[in-house]
Design a protein around this nucleic acid. Structure first.
Length: 299
RNA sequence: GGGGAAGUCGCAUAGUGGCAAUUGCAACAGACUGUAAAUCUGUCCUCUUCGGAGUUCAGUGGUUCGAGUCCACUCUUCCCCA
């Protein structure tokens, strides 16, 4: 049976390098599960793999889209399965690596397909929320899908909006759609978690942010000014520098915030990973030793 | 040496007689099925059987039923004149 090796872990733990080494050892290719590395215009700030790394192993889903045409989990799942299908014709293993939990989930477990809301519907719901009408939306949700209403985070507008827009466009309950059983993947999944001691990770994050600045993050972000309204650019490393460019804060403040926010993101990722069973954890400093003896068949 | 302003829970900030005390940041924990590096929640003086209990607003003393808030002195910081 074919095996997908999924490398997970917090940001800045060295997942990218680990995946490349793994790919070289196994002679296979890499699928990225990173919701920001999809974008062509985002490079330094999202720690895209270096040219050398990209040359060392074939990567999919890196810089494959423009920020002007955002990707989403459904498309991603569909495309990723297609890539895997193709890849497994000639290889026994494939590697997935990335820090976006939802995308890792979509790839490993799948995601219930839901219809596209029309832009008008989405805009209308957003407008109602912006106008402070969340309570009315909650009433609608309670009436149309009491099961989901009972468990949603009612203070999170995005959740409410999402549920309502799918209810209105599908004519079915959101809880019904998410409750449908997902088919098993036709391949084995082996999860490898890269771990890094807290202080070391903090330090690595700080140094990586400094390195990004040296590599020209400021220019990268300046060039993206025209797109700053897009959610895709509501991203650590970009939003802070936009504020610097606005004159709202000093460059030093912006850099400190990027470091803090990256740390907060890393912790969020670690929290997310607690939901997975069966991750084989390996300390980043022992990865090479681990790889020496690693045999996917034994996991 | 003279005059003025100020010291609040890690940092910043609100509070001029009823306060364990506002807000932001940071920190810590958590949620997550089409925005996911997004969005949202809880904790954040100490102890707690989560009902409360005990100590707080530079320090000491005082006025008051009651003081972060008023008064006196002390310490510290900043600004202006010398």
């Amino acid at each position: 049976m074919k095996t997908l090796i999924v490398i997970v872990g917090a940001t800045a733990t060295g997942k990218t390098a680990a995946a490349v080494q793994m790919a070289q050892k196994l002679g296979t290719e890499i699928l990225s599960c990173d919701s920001r590395q999809f974008y062509n215009e985002l490079s330094i700030g999202v720690a895209r793999p270096s040219d050398d790394e990209l040359a060392a192993a074939k990567h999919h889903f890196i810089a494959c889209r423009s920020v002007a045409e955002p990707y989403n989990v459904f498309e991603y799942e569909h495309d990723a399965l297609a890539v895997l299908n193709q890849l497994f014709k000639s290889k026994d293993t494939a590697i997935a690596v990335g820090g976006s939990g939802l995308y890792v989930d979509a790839l490993c477990k799948g995601i219930n397909l839901m219809p596209d809301p029309t832009p008008e519907l989405r805009a209308e719901l957003s407008a109602r929320i912006a106008a402070g009408h969340l309570p009315q939306l909650l009433d609608e949700l309670q009436r149309l899908d009491p099961e989901y209403y009972a468990i949603v985070d009612r203070r999170n507008p995005i959740r409410i909006q999402r549920a309502l827009e799918t209810i209105y466009t599908s004519g079915r309950k959101y809880s019904e759609l998410t409750g449908e059983k997902l088919p098993e993947r036709p391949f084995r999944i082996v999860k490898i978690g890269i771990r890094c001691e807290r202080n070391e990770l903090r330090d690595r994050i700080d140094r990586r942010v400094d390195a990004m600045m040296q590599a020209g993050l400021l220019d990268e972000v300046s060039d993206l000014l025209p797109f700053r309204g897009l959610n895709t650019l509501n991203t650590v490393g970009y939003k802070e520098i936009f504020e610097y460019l606005d004159g709202i804060k000093s460059l030093e403040q912006a850099i400190t915030e990027i470091k803090n926010h990256t740390w907060q993101y890393a912790k969020k990722q670690i929290t997310w990973l607690k939901r997975y069973d069966g991750i084989s954890w390996v300390d980043r400093n022992n990865f090479e030793d681990f790889l020496q003896v690693f045999d996917p068949k034994r996991y």
